[in-house]
């Protein structure tokens, strides 16, 4: 049986709030609380602090504090740093949707919506709510980590293939959110974007040598360097596990992958990253092939994400083989 969620819906249109109330009854009686503005929503969240909300439905276009500002404010609250937030938008403009994802949105639904669509989106986020989680944690890259997972402590180990969350880095979102984002691109014909991935070379060596805490720090620093290197371009990025960072770019920017890789590696070389014993870590990345999303539809969009992931992994393997061959040639020489 599916767990019921406690949901806060925020929209300045009372008709939307009434519709959502009816929809919630129809899809199985989630507990719904409503607010008509961002300011009211923050008050309601505070009032419900003892039994926090498990999901947010937020209108993007509202007077005063809009939905993008609201999701940013919600993310700043410790209790809701990872609570699923579905944006409600009547707009197809990509810039609003991008901003919402960058601010911390998990998914979005386009208005006017249908009950079946809303049910599907709620079903997707429901599995991210702790109460709906199986007790055994899955560790493979294809399975997103729970949204509500606690922040790691020094003692907590993470799996190499785990798509861990990297907070507080510009344009870096959870892998689940990126998957939702690219899926929505197909639905809204927002074509023209490109997907590619970076792979951190010798990630297994770093993983074996470092504690979970240090490994997470290495990934966060690498993410920050990649994000900073791409500043000035519109993109969203996530960590997909196994040293892979997947990037979705805005239409119009087709990066030169070699130059981008060199720029990131130069920035990494200039960044001082240390483990807990003070030894300097020197991560380097390779890039896979860029994949244009034009004409991709349905499941092929997610396949493109997987292809970009695989391409970067293969590039990392090739790089190490090439380096191995160089040593062999020198030894024989």
């Amino acid at each position: 049986m599916e767990a019921k969620m406690k949901i806060l819906a925020v929209d300045d249109d009372p008709i939307i709030l009434e519709l959502l109330t009816q929809f919630m009854d129809a899809v199985g009686g989630h507990e719904l609380v409503t607010a008509e503005s961002g300011a009211e929503a923050l008050e309601v969240i505070e009032q419900h602090a003892m039994a926090p909300f498990e999901c947010f439905l937020l209108d993007i276009q509202m007077p005063g504090m809009d939905g993008v500002e609201l999701v940013r404010a919600i993310r700043a609250l410790k209790a809701h740093a990872h609570t699923p937030a579905i944006m409600l938008t009547a707009m197809s403009e990509k810039r609003y949707i991008d901003s919402a994802f960058a601010a911390g949105a998990t998914d979005y639904v386009t208005k006017p919506f249908e009950v079946t669509e809303l049910k599907t989106r709620l079903g997707l986020v429901q599995r991210l709510v702790p109460a709906a989680q199986p007790s055994t944690k899955k560790i493979f890259a294809a399975t997103p980590q729970t949204e509500a997972a606690p922040l790691p402590t020094q003692e907590q180990e993470i799996a190499l293939f785990e798509p861990i969350s990297i907070p507080d880095v510009d344009n870096v979102i959870r892998h689940t959110a990126l998957e939702n984002y690219v899926t929505q691109l197909s639905r809204n014909s927002l074509f023209g974007s490109t997907i590619f991935a970076f792979s951190v070379r010798r990630i297994e060596s770093f993983y074996d040598a470092l504690s979970g805490f240090e490994f997470r720090g290495l990934l966060a620093d690498t993410a920050e360097v990649i994000s900073n290197t791409m500043q000035g371009h519109q993109f969203l990025m996530s960590y997909a596990g196994n040293g892979i960072f997947v990037v979705v770019t805005e239409s119009g920017w087709r990066p030169d992958m070699e130059k981008l890789k060199d720029a990131v590696n130069l920035a990494l070389a200039q960044t001082e990253i240390y483990d807990n014993s003070g030894e300097r870590l020197q991560p380097r990345v390779v890039t896979g092939k860029p994949i244009r999303l034009v004409w991709k539809v349905g499941s092929s969009i997610l396949q493109s994400l997987a292809d970009a992931h695989s391409s970067a992994e293969e590039a990392a393997v090739r790089k190490e083989q090439d380096l191995g061959n160089i040593w062999m040639v020198r030894e024989y020489g």
Binding site: D13, I15, I16, L19, Q61, P63, L88, A90, K111, P112, F113, E114
Partner: peptide
């Protein structure tokens, strides 16, 4: 525009598809 935006956002969900499309 703000009023049209609201109409466009809900009319379709309530069965008023033509009105919603025209509002959009």
């Amino acid at each position: 525009q703000n009023i049209l935006h609201k109409i466009a956002g809900t009319a379709g969900s309530l069965g008023f598809d033509t009105l919603g499309n025209e509002a959009r």
